[in-house]
Design a protein around this nucleic acid. Structure first.
Length: 320
DNA sequence: TTCCGGGACC
DNA sequence: GGTCCCGGAA
Protein backbone atom coordinates (compact mmCIF):
# COMPACT_ATOMS: atom_id res chain seq x y z
CA UNK A 1 0.00 0.00 0.00
CA UNK A 2 1.36 3.37 -0.97
CA UNK A 3 0.77 5.92 1.74
CA UNK A 4 -0.55 9.22 0.57
CA UNK A 5 0.64 11.30 3.50
CA UNK A 6 1.85 10.53 6.96
CA UNK A 7 -0.94 12.35 8.70
CA UNK A 8 -3.80 10.57 6.94
CA UNK A 9 -6.37 9.22 9.35
CA UNK A 10 -7.30 5.58 9.08
CA UNK A 11 -10.10 5.37 6.50
CA UNK A 12 -12.38 3.49 8.87
CA UNK A 13 -11.96 6.23 11.48
CA UNK A 14 -13.46 8.63 8.98
CA UNK A 15 -16.08 6.39 7.43
CA UNK A 16 -16.95 4.56 10.63
CA UNK A 17 -16.01 0.95 11.30
CA UNK A 18 -19.34 -0.67 10.51
CA UNK A 19 -19.98 1.59 7.54
CA UNK A 20 -16.51 0.74 6.25
CA UNK A 21 -17.18 -2.97 6.57
CA UNK A 22 -20.48 -2.61 4.75
CA UNK A 23 -18.88 -0.56 1.99
CA UNK A 24 -16.15 -3.18 1.58
CA UNK A 25 -18.72 -5.94 1.22
CA UNK A 26 -20.62 -3.94 -1.38
CA UNK A 27 -17.41 -3.17 -3.25
CA UNK A 28 -16.60 -6.86 -3.44
CA UNK A 29 -20.01 -7.56 -4.91
CA UNK A 30 -19.61 -4.82 -7.49
CA UNK A 31 -16.23 -5.94 -8.74
CA UNK A 32 -17.37 -8.72 -11.01
CA UNK A 33 -20.03 -6.73 -12.92
CA UNK A 34 -17.82 -3.66 -13.04
CA UNK A 35 -14.82 -5.54 -14.43
CA UNK A 36 -17.00 -7.36 -16.93
CA UNK A 37 -18.32 -4.01 -18.10
CA UNK A 38 -14.76 -2.65 -18.28
CA UNK A 39 -13.64 -5.57 -20.44
CA UNK A 40 -16.35 -4.80 -22.98
CA UNK A 41 -16.64 -1.02 -22.89
CA UNK A 42 -13.22 0.38 -22.03
CA UNK A 43 -12.07 2.69 -24.78
CA UNK A 44 -8.87 1.65 -26.44
CA UNK A 45 -6.61 4.60 -25.76
CA UNK A 46 -2.97 4.59 -26.78
CA UNK A 47 -1.63 5.09 -23.26
CA UNK A 48 -3.58 2.24 -21.71
CA UNK A 49 -2.65 -1.37 -21.04
CA UNK A 50 1.06 -0.83 -20.77
CA UNK A 51 1.41 0.46 -24.30
CA UNK A 52 3.42 3.47 -23.17
CA UNK A 53 6.06 4.37 -20.60
CA UNK A 54 5.34 5.85 -17.17
CA UNK A 55 6.38 9.18 -18.68
CA UNK A 56 3.78 8.71 -21.42
CA UNK A 57 1.14 8.06 -18.76
CA UNK A 58 2.15 11.25 -16.97
CA UNK A 59 1.90 13.30 -20.17
CA UNK A 60 -1.56 11.87 -20.80
CA UNK A 61 -2.71 12.59 -17.25
CA UNK A 62 -1.50 16.17 -17.36
CA UNK A 63 -3.22 16.74 -20.70
CA UNK A 64 -6.39 15.06 -19.42
CA UNK A 65 -6.53 17.31 -16.37
CA UNK A 66 -8.39 19.80 -18.46
CA UNK A 67 -9.63 17.97 -21.53
CA UNK A 68 -11.73 14.94 -22.37
CA UNK A 69 -9.68 11.87 -23.23
CA UNK A 70 -10.94 11.73 -26.78
CA UNK A 71 -9.65 15.17 -27.61
CA UNK A 72 -6.31 14.46 -25.98
CA UNK A 73 -5.45 11.54 -28.27
CA UNK A 74 -4.09 13.46 -31.31
CA UNK A 75 -2.15 15.88 -29.10
CA UNK A 76 -0.67 13.10 -27.01
CA UNK A 77 0.29 11.03 -30.04
CA UNK A 78 2.10 13.88 -31.78
CA UNK A 79 3.70 14.99 -28.50
CA UNK A 80 5.09 11.55 -27.61
CA UNK A 81 6.39 11.05 -31.11
CA UNK A 82 8.26 14.32 -30.90
CA UNK A 83 9.36 14.12 -27.25
CA UNK A 84 9.23 10.46 -26.21
CA UNK A 85 10.79 10.95 -22.79
CA UNK A 86 11.52 13.55 -20.16
CA UNK A 87 15.01 14.28 -21.49
CA UNK A 88 13.68 15.07 -24.94
CA UNK A 89 11.03 17.42 -23.59
CA UNK A 90 13.53 19.04 -21.25
CA UNK A 91 15.71 19.99 -24.21
CA UNK A 92 12.92 21.47 -26.33
CA UNK A 93 12.54 25.22 -26.89
CA UNK A 94 9.71 26.57 -24.78
CA UNK A 95 8.10 28.10 -27.87
CA UNK A 96 7.84 24.66 -29.46
CA UNK A 97 6.31 23.22 -26.31
CA UNK A 98 3.66 25.95 -26.13
CA UNK A 99 2.93 25.62 -29.82
CA UNK A 100 2.49 21.86 -29.57
CA UNK A 101 0.20 22.36 -26.58
CA UNK A 102 -2.11 24.07 -29.08
CA UNK A 103 -5.65 24.55 -27.91
CA UNK A 104 -5.53 22.20 -24.95
CA UNK A 105 -5.93 25.16 -22.63
CA UNK A 106 -4.09 26.37 -19.54
CA UNK A 107 -0.72 26.78 -21.27
CA UNK A 108 1.06 27.28 -17.94
CA UNK A 109 0.63 23.57 -17.49
CA UNK A 110 2.66 22.91 -20.60
CA UNK A 111 5.48 24.90 -19.02
CA UNK A 112 5.09 23.03 -15.73
CA UNK A 113 5.25 19.74 -17.59
CA UNK A 114 8.50 20.85 -19.17
CA UNK A 115 9.87 21.98 -15.80
CA UNK A 116 8.89 18.59 -14.48
CA UNK A 117 10.73 16.97 -17.40
CA UNK A 118 13.86 18.97 -16.58
CA UNK A 119 13.85 17.79 -12.98
CA UNK A 120 13.18 14.19 -13.96
CA UNK A 121 15.91 14.25 -16.60
CA UNK A 122 18.49 15.99 -14.43
CA UNK A 123 17.80 14.53 -10.99
CA UNK A 124 16.01 11.23 -11.57
CA UNK A 125 18.07 9.69 -14.37
CA UNK A 126 15.25 10.41 -16.80
CA UNK A 127 13.01 8.01 -14.91
CA UNK A 128 9.71 9.05 -13.42
CA UNK A 129 9.76 8.53 -9.62
CA UNK A 130 7.67 5.75 -8.18
CA UNK A 131 6.63 7.20 -4.85
CA UNK A 132 3.90 9.63 -3.91
CA UNK A 133 5.98 12.20 -2.05
CA UNK A 134 8.58 12.57 -4.79
CA UNK A 135 5.95 12.75 -7.51
CA UNK A 136 3.87 15.41 -5.79
CA UNK A 137 7.01 17.47 -5.22
CA UNK A 138 7.42 17.78 -8.99
CA UNK A 139 6.00 20.82 -10.81
CA UNK A 140 2.42 20.37 -12.01
CA UNK A 141 1.87 17.06 -10.22
CA UNK A 142 -0.74 17.11 -7.48
CA UNK A 143 -2.61 14.41 -5.62
CA UNK A 144 -4.63 13.17 -8.56
CA UNK A 145 -1.82 12.98 -11.08
CA UNK A 146 0.59 11.31 -8.66
CA UNK A 147 -1.99 8.70 -7.72
CA UNK A 148 -2.90 8.09 -11.35
CA UNK A 149 0.74 7.53 -12.33
CA UNK A 150 1.34 5.17 -9.41
CA UNK A 151 -1.80 3.18 -10.16
CA UNK A 152 -1.91 3.16 -13.97
CA UNK A 153 1.78 3.21 -14.85
CA UNK A 154 3.34 1.37 -11.91
CA UNK A 155 0.47 -0.83 -10.75
CA UNK A 156 0.83 0.31 -7.13
CA UNK A 157 -2.16 -0.05 -4.88
CA UNK A 158 -3.38 3.50 -4.29
CA UNK A 159 -6.80 5.08 -4.47
CA UNK A 160 -7.22 7.58 -7.31
CA UNK A 161 -9.57 10.45 -6.53
CA UNK A 162 -10.82 12.59 -9.39
CA UNK A 163 -14.25 14.09 -9.93
CA UNK A 164 -15.53 11.14 -11.94
CA UNK A 165 -14.51 8.68 -9.24
CA UNK A 166 -15.87 10.89 -6.47
CA UNK A 167 -19.21 11.13 -8.24
CA UNK A 168 -19.51 7.39 -8.89
CA UNK A 169 -18.42 6.27 -5.42
CA UNK A 170 -20.57 8.84 -3.68
CA UNK A 171 -23.62 7.78 -5.65
CA UNK A 172 -23.13 4.03 -5.47
CA UNK A 173 -21.94 3.70 -1.87
CA UNK A 174 -23.46 6.71 -0.10
CA UNK A 175 -26.53 7.23 -2.27
CA UNK A 176 -25.87 10.92 -2.65
CA UNK A 177 -24.33 13.41 -5.04
CA UNK A 178 -20.74 14.52 -4.64
CA UNK A 179 -21.22 18.25 -4.55
CA UNK A 180 -17.84 19.29 -5.90
CA UNK A 181 -15.30 21.57 -4.34
CA UNK A 182 -12.31 20.03 -2.57
CA UNK A 183 -12.57 16.30 -1.92
CA UNK A 184 -13.95 15.74 1.57
CA UNK A 185 -12.20 13.47 4.06
CA UNK A 186 -15.17 11.15 3.76
CA UNK A 187 -14.84 10.86 -0.01
CA UNK A 188 -11.14 10.17 0.25
CA UNK A 189 -11.63 7.61 3.01
CA UNK A 190 -14.38 5.94 1.01
CA UNK A 191 -12.08 5.60 -2.00
CA UNK A 192 -9.48 3.96 0.27
CA UNK A 193 -11.97 1.62 1.90
CA UNK A 194 -13.51 0.25 -1.31
CA UNK A 195 -10.22 -0.18 -3.17
CA UNK A 196 -9.47 -3.86 -3.84
CA UNK A 197 -6.65 -5.17 -1.67
CA UNK A 198 -4.88 -6.78 -4.60
CA UNK A 199 -2.64 -4.27 -6.41
CA UNK A 200 -3.49 -5.35 -9.93
CA UNK A 201 -7.21 -5.40 -9.22
CA UNK A 202 -6.94 -1.97 -7.60
CA UNK A 203 -5.54 -0.43 -10.80
CA UNK A 204 -8.34 -1.97 -12.85
CA UNK A 205 -10.85 -0.75 -10.28
CA UNK A 206 -9.56 2.81 -10.47
CA UNK A 207 -9.69 2.86 -14.26
CA UNK A 208 -13.07 1.13 -14.47
CA UNK A 209 -14.74 3.44 -11.94
CA UNK A 210 -13.29 6.44 -13.74
CA UNK A 211 -14.41 5.15 -17.12
CA UNK A 212 -17.87 4.41 -15.78
CA UNK A 213 -18.08 8.00 -14.58
CA UNK A 214 -17.01 9.29 -17.98
CA UNK A 215 -19.29 7.10 -20.08
CA UNK A 216 -22.30 6.02 -17.99
CA UNK A 217 -22.51 7.62 -14.55
CA UNK A 218 -22.24 11.14 -15.92
CA UNK A 219 -22.97 14.26 -13.92
CA UNK A 220 -26.23 15.38 -15.44
CA UNK A 221 -27.74 12.50 -17.36
CA UNK A 222 -26.47 9.21 -15.99
CA UNK A 223 -27.49 6.25 -18.12
CA UNK A 224 -28.62 4.13 -15.20
CA UNK A 225 -30.37 1.66 -17.52
CA UNK A 226 -27.00 0.76 -19.02
CA UNK A 227 -25.08 0.71 -15.75
CA UNK A 228 -23.50 -2.55 -14.61
CA UNK A 229 -23.99 -1.46 -10.98
CA UNK A 230 -27.66 -0.50 -11.22
CA UNK A 231 -28.88 -3.42 -9.11
CA UNK A 232 -26.86 -2.41 -6.09
CA UNK A 233 -26.55 1.35 -6.53
CA UNK A 234 -27.77 3.22 -3.46
CA UNK A 235 -28.27 6.41 -5.43
CA UNK A 236 -30.58 4.75 -7.93
CA UNK A 237 -32.41 2.91 -5.15
CA UNK A 238 -33.02 6.22 -3.40
CA UNK A 239 -34.58 7.69 -6.52
CA UNK A 240 -31.48 9.66 -7.59
CA UNK A 241 -31.98 12.48 -5.06
CA UNK A 242 -30.76 15.95 -6.08
CA UNK A 243 -29.42 14.58 -9.35
CA UNK A 244 -26.90 16.90 -10.94
CA UNK A 245 -26.74 19.25 -7.99
CA UNK A 246 -23.42 20.99 -7.44
CA UNK A 247 -21.99 23.27 -4.84
CA UNK A 248 -22.69 26.70 -6.26
CA UNK A 249 -19.37 28.15 -7.06
CA UNK A 250 -18.63 31.76 -7.75
CA UNK A 251 -17.96 31.63 -11.41
CA UNK A 252 -16.34 34.30 -13.38
CA UNK A 253 -17.84 35.01 -16.78
CA UNK A 254 -15.35 34.17 -19.46
CA UNK A 255 -16.23 36.79 -22.07
CA UNK A 256 -14.25 39.97 -21.54
CA UNK A 257 -12.00 38.60 -18.81
CA UNK A 258 -8.24 38.70 -18.71
CA UNK A 259 -8.42 34.99 -19.27
CA UNK A 260 -10.04 35.43 -22.64
CA UNK A 261 -7.57 38.15 -23.63
CA UNK A 262 -4.61 36.02 -22.59
CA UNK A 263 -5.99 33.17 -24.64
CA UNK A 264 -6.35 35.40 -27.70
CA UNK A 265 -2.76 36.61 -27.43
CA UNK A 266 -1.42 33.07 -27.00
CA UNK A 267 -3.43 31.82 -29.94
CA UNK A 268 -2.10 34.62 -32.16
CA UNK A 269 1.45 33.79 -31.13
CA UNK A 270 1.05 30.09 -31.81
CA UNK A 271 -0.20 30.83 -35.28
CA UNK A 272 2.63 33.25 -35.88
CA UNK A 273 5.47 31.13 -34.69
CA UNK A 274 6.13 29.54 -38.07
CA UNK A 275 7.48 32.91 -39.22
CA UNK A 276 11.17 33.68 -39.07
CA UNK A 277 11.07 35.45 -35.74
CA UNK A 278 7.50 34.96 -34.60
CA UNK A 279 7.30 38.45 -33.16
CA UNK A 280 3.93 40.09 -32.74
CA UNK A 281 4.25 43.88 -32.70
CA UNK A 282 2.40 45.93 -30.10
CA UNK A 283 0.43 47.49 -32.95
CA UNK A 284 -0.65 44.10 -34.28
CA UNK A 285 -1.48 42.97 -30.75
CA UNK A 286 -3.62 46.10 -30.39
CA UNK A 287 -5.82 44.86 -33.20
CA UNK A 288 -6.59 41.69 -31.23
CA UNK A 289 -8.41 43.48 -28.43
CA UNK A 290 -9.99 46.93 -28.19
CA UNK A 291 -9.09 47.73 -24.56
CA UNK A 292 -5.42 48.72 -24.63
CA UNK A 293 -5.08 48.96 -20.86
CA UNK A 294 -6.42 45.46 -20.35
CA UNK A 295 -4.30 44.15 -23.22
CA UNK A 296 -1.13 45.57 -21.69
CA UNK A 297 -2.03 44.13 -18.33
CA UNK A 298 -2.50 40.71 -19.90
CA UNK A 299 0.75 40.94 -21.84
CA UNK A 300 2.53 41.79 -18.59
CA UNK A 301 0.95 38.86 -16.77
CA UNK A 302 1.76 36.44 -19.60
CA UNK A 303 5.35 37.64 -19.40
CA UNK A 304 5.40 37.11 -15.64
CA UNK A 305 4.10 33.58 -16.16
CA UNK A 306 6.90 32.88 -18.63
CA UNK A 307 4.42 32.25 -21.40
CA UNK A 308 5.70 35.05 -23.63
CA UNK A 309 8.73 37.27 -23.98
CA UNK A 310 8.64 40.99 -24.49
CA UNK A 311 11.00 42.02 -27.29
CA UNK A 312 12.53 45.50 -27.26
CA UNK A 313 9.68 46.54 -25.03
CA UNK A 314 7.67 46.70 -28.22
CA UNK A 315 6.55 43.29 -29.34
CA UNK A 316 5.94 39.85 -27.96
CA UNK A 317 6.84 36.32 -28.95
CA UNK A 318 6.74 32.82 -27.54
CA UNK A 319 9.66 32.35 -25.14
CA UNK A 320 12.96 30.84 -26.26
C1' DT B 1 -25.71 32.65 -26.82
C1' DT B 2 -24.50 31.12 -22.25
C1' DC B 3 -23.01 27.64 -19.07
C1' DC B 4 -19.92 24.41 -17.28
C1' DG B 5 -16.25 20.90 -15.99
C1' DG B 6 -11.43 19.76 -14.91
C1' DG B 7 -6.64 19.66 -11.33
C1' DA B 8 -2.70 22.40 -9.65
C1' DC B 9 -1.33 26.12 -7.30
C1' DC B 10 -1.74 30.32 -4.67
C1' DG C 1 -11.87 29.92 -2.58
C1' DG C 2 -9.94 32.30 -6.81
C1' DT C 3 -7.33 31.86 -11.16
C1' DC C 4 -5.99 29.62 -15.15
C1' DC C 5 -8.34 28.06 -20.81
C1' DC C 6 -11.01 25.52 -24.04
C1' DG C 7 -14.77 23.06 -26.41
C1' DG C 8 -18.97 20.90 -26.09
C1' DA C 9 -23.52 20.78 -23.86
C1' DA C 10 -27.56 23.22 -22.86
Amino acid sequence: MVTRTKKNAEPSDVVGVSRAASARRLAEQLRRPLFAWWDVHARTLPWRDGRTSPWGVLVCEVMSQQTQMGRVVPYWTAWMERWPDAAALAAAPRADVLEAWGRLGYPRRALRLQECARVVAAECHDELPRDYATLTALPGIGDYTASAVLSFAYGERIAVVDTNIRRVLSRVFLGEESLGGAASALERALADVVLPSDAQASATWNQAVMELGALVCTAKQPACDDCPLRERCRFLAAGRPRLGERRTRPRQRFAGTDRQVRGIVMQALRELSADAHGVLSREAAGRLWPDGVQLDRCIASLDEDGLIEIVDGHGVRLPR
